[in-house]
Amino acid sequence: MITQVPAILLQAAPTTFEEGDLHQGLIIAIVGLLIVFLVLIFLSLFIASLPKVLALVGRVWPEVEEHRAISNEADDEDTEMELLAAIGFVLHTEFQRQASGGQSAK
């Protein structure tokens, strides 16, 4: 004999609907909607007050326009440009030297 236990049986069975449940359903719907509104009202109030709070904080701890990571990126870019310029200069000098060497050989 083989007994298989399907996974679906291990889950809770759905509750059955009864006549008086509509009233309870209506309460759940209203309370649920109120909770959503409550959260978003709080969120809205927080967002509205955030600039004012940050203005106060900004007096003590001013906001830095550029972040460290961005400044590092900018530094990297500068270094890269300098490196390219140096390589360009060396190549240019070398080509000129070769060109002048070639002419003299002729």
Partner: peptide, 24 residues
Amino acid sequence: LLGAAAQMGVFLTFFGALCLGFTF
């Protein structure tokens, strides 16, 4: 708040589904 208002669709449909005989 408009994002909250649109959720009325969720809760009214929840109630509508109950009326149509679905379980909670």
